[in-house]
Amino acid sequence: MALAAAHPGGGLLLASPVQAALRLLELLPSAAFWRAVGNSSLRIFGGFLLSCALAALLAALAAGRPWFRDLLAPPVAVVKAVPVASFIILALVWLDSRSLSLFISGLMVFPPVYLNVLEGLRRTDGKLLELARVYRIPLGRRIWGIYVPQVLPYFRSAASLALGLCWKAGAAAEVIGLPAGTIGERLYTAKVYLQTPDLFAWTAVILMLSAGFERLFLGVVDLLAGKAGR
């Protein structure tokens, strides 16, 4: 790849890291750049957060209700197995392109978060729950003292995985749906006009956003874990 980039005219097909970095520096001061970053982040991270909340809620309901767990098992298995491109094309029929990345990133986040939270809840220490029952500990304190410390490590590993997935799937949804003023639209334009420095610069932006949001979110989770039960 480095050889291809170093070849005279090779930058057209494969930009060098320096070209990509320079292009990124050019993009940084423009309002359109930050608008694209803001729009994509809002939808993709929004989809992540909404999906996390829904997955945690449904896992809490499923933990004590085997029939509900069985009911959710097939759709969760389908979402896990079906290629994201199929969902994107199907979702385009029903949704406008602006909502697409929110929906698709949420869809990708749901299975790992739901399954991990469910597993954490199912492994909750039954002896501590008995203690809570005998001492008549209210639900809020049970959740904060028993369930949260038990589930957080499972949720943390799922969220770490899901954050990477949601950015990949969300960007793919934007490239296919082409909502105006998003990173996906910029990636598509770069591809059409063979602007490989742009392509690499935007890819680097996605990587940085994904890593940044992961650090931020996991930092909050760790803070919560430190306070759980106290």
């Binding site: 002896k127 001492y135 500990i137 410390p149 039960g229």
Partner: peptide, 20 residues
Amino acid sequence: FQEDRLLEDLPAAGNLRFAL
């Protein structure tokens, strides 16, 4: 109980606060 059933990551005061 037969086992202590304490919240192992909390200090004594935290355990009392949780239960009481």
